[in-house]
Write a protein that binds this DNA or RNA. Structure first.
Lengths: 253, 253
DNA sequence: AAGTGGTCTAGACCACCAC
DNA sequence: TGGTGGTCTAGACCACTTG
């Protein structure tokens, strides 16, 4: 499979191209992905093998791999190796769609796993975000969501228990929106989002089984019911390579 | 200013912390930014100076700096050095606001510079995106936009000349929307956007005076007039550290 | 001309993972 | 236990920027 990977560093074509050799390796690997020699989720040979193949040091091959990581073509599972990134999922904020639904609609397999749930005292920070008096209890939920068995986001949700007492009794490995509707009789009808490229912290990266410090997208949201009550404040941390955000203005009048 | 930057690698606190030393340096520098010892747009000492200060090799200090770059706290101007990143600008796609307006409204200085403009033959790619028959002429414009004298995005715009003949005669260092309105009598009333984290190519990075391959946000858009005509197709490449995207659902009924 | 970041070599030891 | 990626040392030469 990885035979005949030859890219000659001292060949005239490369010497006169002026771009550094690690970018030639990058192009070479990108081509393998593009022509499907390397397919979605394939594991690459180890860094040491690759550095032998291309006759460079590990530092150089790592620059090529990191470049492809930034581009979203490759990812690494912490200490497990390098893999070809699966296609991005399309996220349409204005549709206010449920994760399970839009992932399934794309022909992929969604999964939500609850990492922790607690009824804890509101801090000054959650007080500010959620509008609950400091010291009062709020629900704090942490979940991990995967697509085709690859973890793609961690979310932290803070919920005002006034609107959904006994929430901890529910099965939270699905849509909160549905639980609100079925068990508490209200709907989420409006929301505000903020999306920001950031780096994934150690804690988030470990939960997603990726290397600390790679880039991600942080999405903060506030969600309201019909009456305008602020029900929850949430933060999602997505792998940067898993997401494409689409937006359309209101249709023509 | 950079005196007394001491962080002792072999101190017990750091040794027992388990995290790699380059992250301690990262934390140290992040703290200097947070407490305003290092301020927006300040230049850092050179990598060699920093590596002496912290008693590590350049490779290690570069890992710290690159980490802060991914987080958006530092940026580097190509071969000029490392600088503290200015605050992000907030971008609200649904407002369909003009760059000059939302940057000014944030108390910052916008600037648009036209890099090139041409009436060229439509390719298969632009044909597909713009719906113009291949071989027919289309306007192709490339612009650079800055905030407070820092280039933050490059945009490539492809326009169907059927709706705005003689466009090249206009001053394009401002809002195209305004030109459409004033000179051609139509308005942009709907649009579709797609936003995607990517890496900046060599060409884009050079135009923005940053290092090739750093992460960015690619925003593709199609914009339509009142009658639903597709006027233009555009691609913007933003520095990832310059942008926060905000979105709000329709107000309550 | 001096200094900067960009690229690269040739090693090393470690923590962790799969077998 | 052997191999992986993660971290780090101690250098080097180059292209480019700044004075």
């Amino acid at each position: 499979m990885f035979q005949n990977w030859k890219l000659i560093k001292d060949s005239p074509a490369i010497k006169e191209s002026k771009s550094p050799f690690y970018l030639h390796i990058r192009d070479y690997l990108a081509e393998q992905i593009s022509n499907k020699t390397l397919r979605s989720s394939d594991k690459l040979p180890s860094e040491r093998i690759l550095s032998q193949e291309f006759s460079v040091t590990r530092i150089t091959i790592r620059e090529s791999l990191q470049q492809l990581e930034v581009e979203g073509l490759l990812y690494r599972a912490n200490r497990k190796g390098w893999f070809v990134t699966p296609p991005r999922i399309i996220y349409k904020p204005q549709d206010n769609q449920i994760f399970e639904d839009y992932v399934s609609a794309a022909g992929r397999l969604p999964k939500t796993e609850t990492l922790s749930i607690a009824l804890q005292e509101s801090t000054r920070w959650t007080e500010e975000k959620l509008g609950v008096t400091a010291g009062k209890p709020i629900y704090s939920i942490k979940r991990k969501r995967s697509i085709d068995h690859r973890p793609v986001l961690i979310e932290e949700i803070y919920i005002n228990p006034e609107f959904c007492p006994g929430l901890t009794q529910q099965n939270l490995n699905g849509s909160l929106t549905k639980i609100y509707k079925q068990h508490y009789g209200f709907s989420i009808t409006s929301f505000a989002l903020s999306m920001c490229p950031t780096a994934l912290t150690k804690e988030i990266a470990e939960a997603l089984e990726v290397t600390t410090g790679i880039s991600g997208i942080a999405i903060s949201s506030k969600r309201f019911d019909e009456a305008g009550n602020l029900i929850e404040f949430a933060r999602e941390y997505w792998l940067h390579d898993s997401l494409e955000i689409q937006f359309q203005s209101a249709p023509l009048k």
